[in-house]
């Protein structure tokens, strides 16, 4: 975002930040779990828009495809598979809700006040690490190289031979995902032991 684009950028930020926060609150307030999923999608989608605004294109797109397109659809799928009646509502008792709300407000206050108390270092003027080579959020290539262990975006000092990339974490995450794939399939395999079959979807 250059300076002349500031108005549009701030307006968009305001819209998406508001959408993110309001739908996050709506997730907490809604009673049926599918409505929660709906508000969660809007909240996470607006967060992806915030990522785009903060020049993190790849993270925004990853957020959309993995979180919204993958994880949440999985969650809704889970909702459908575990619904024992249409529009299942499991209400918390009013006392719990009030205590939860009060504690939440208190917590929010604590976080906000600590946020105000911190003196953040001034933003780097000119070229920060990300924006050095690509000023407009094109972080794709540096990200890919960093995951492969190369960091062209960092100024390595002469004697610095230590790799600052993320090759090992990347490999660990890959193996982790494979393990999760197998584990989840093993856990969720069909083994209906209970006498009454789930009739939630029919009724």
């Amino acid at each position: 975002m250059n300076d002349s684009n500031l108005l549009g950028g701030q307006l968009l930020f305001a819209i998406f930040a508001l959408a993110t926060c309001l739908s996050a609150v709506a997730v907490v307030v809604s009673q049926t779990v599918v409505r929660m999923a709906f508000w969660l999608v809007i909240s996470l989608g607006s967060t992806a828009a915030l990522f785009f605004l903060a020049d993190a294109d790849f993270i925004g797109a990853a957020q959309l495809i993995i979180y919204v397109g993958g994880t949440l659809i999985l969650l809704v799928f889970g909702v459908m598979l575990t619904a024992s009646s249409p529009y299942l509502k499991i209400k918390s008792s009013p006392g719990e809700t009030i205590i939860g709300g009060l504690l939440g407000l208190l917590f929010m206050f604590a976080v906000f006040s600590s946020l105000q108390g911190v003196e953040w270092p001034a933003p780097p003027t000119g070229d920060s690490a990300v924006t050095a080579g690509s000023p407009e959020g094109n972080t794709l290539r540096p990200l890919g190289l960093a995951l492969l262990g190369a960091r062209p975006d960092l100024d390595l000092h002469d004697g610095d031979t230590l790799s600052t990339g993320y090759l090992l974490p990347f490999e660990i995450v890959s193996v982790h995902l494979l393990v999760v794939l197998i584990g989840a399939a093993y856990l969720a395999r069909a083994k209906r032991k209970s006498a009454a079959p789930a009739e939630g979807l029919e009724s």
Partner: peptide
């Protein structure tokens, strides 16, 4: 966008 294809598939 530098990752246009990725964004379009995501959307």
């Amino acid at each position: 966008a530098d990752c246009g294809l990725f964004i379009i598939l995501a959307v």
